Amino acid sequence: MRIANTVSDSIVDGPGLRFTVFTQGCPHHCSGCHNPNTHDPAGGQEVEVAELAEKMTANPLTDGLTLSGGEPFDQAQACAALAELAKERGLNVWTYTGYTWEKLLEGGDPGVLALLAHTDVLVDGPFVEGLKSYDALFRGSTNQRLIDVPKSLAAGQVVLWQRPDLLAHFTRPES
Score class of each variant (00 low, 15 high):
Val12Asn: 11
Asp13Tyr: 04
Asp13Ile: 06
Gly16Gln: 11
Leu17Cys: 11
Leu17Val: 08
Arg18Leu: 07
Thr20His: 00
Thr20Lys: 00
Thr20Asp: 00
Val21Lys: 02
Phe22Gly: 00
Phe22Ala: 07
Gly25His: 04
Gly25Ser: 04
Cys26Ile: 03
His28Thr: 07
His28Phe: 15
His28Met: 13
His29Phe: 15
His29Met: 12
His29Arg: 15
His29Ala: 14
His29Glu: 12
Ser31Trp: 14
Ser31Gly: 12
Ser31Glu: 15
Gly32Lys: 01
Cys33Thr: 07
Cys33Asn: 05
Asn35Pro: 02
Asn37Trp: 13
Thr38Phe: 08
His39Tyr: 10
His39Met: 09
His39Ser: 07
Asp40Trp: 07
Asp40Gln: 05
Pro41Phe: 04
Ala42Pro: 02
Gly43Tyr: 01
Gly43Ala: 09
Gly44Lys: 10
Gln45Glu: 14
Gln45His: 13
Gln45Met: 15
Gln45Cys: 13
Glu46Trp: 12
Glu46His: 11
Val49His: 01
Val49Gly: 07
Ala50Pro: 02
Ala50Arg: 10
Glu51Val: 14
Leu52Gly: 09
Ala53Asp: 03
Glu54Val: 13
Lys55Gln: 15
Thr57Gly: 03
Asn59Asp: 15
Asn59His: 14
Pro60Leu: 05
Leu61Tyr: 10
Leu61His: 09
Thr62Pro: 00
Thr62Lys: 01
Gly64Asn: 06
Thr66Ala: 11
Gly69Trp: 06
Gly69Cys: 10
Gly69Pro: 02
Gly69Lys: 04
Pro72Arg: 09
Pro72Trp: 09
Asp74Gln: 14
Asp74Trp: 14
Gln75Gly: 06
Ala78Gly: 07
Cys79Ile: 08
Ala80Asn: 05
Ala80Ile: 09
Ala80Met: 06
Ala81Asn: 11
Ala81His: 07
Leu82Arg: 01
Leu82Cys: 09
Leu82Gly: 08
Ala83Glu: 01
Lys87Thr: 01
Glu88Trp: 12
Glu88Thr: 14
Arg89Gln: 13
Leu91Thr: 00
Leu91Gly: 06
Val93Gly: 02
Trp94Asn: 10
Thr95Ala: 10
Tyr99Met: 09
Glu102Ser: 12
Glu102Gly: 06
Leu104Gly: 01
Leu105Lys: 00
Glu106Gln: 15
Glu106Lys: 13
Gly107Lys: 12
Gly107His: 08
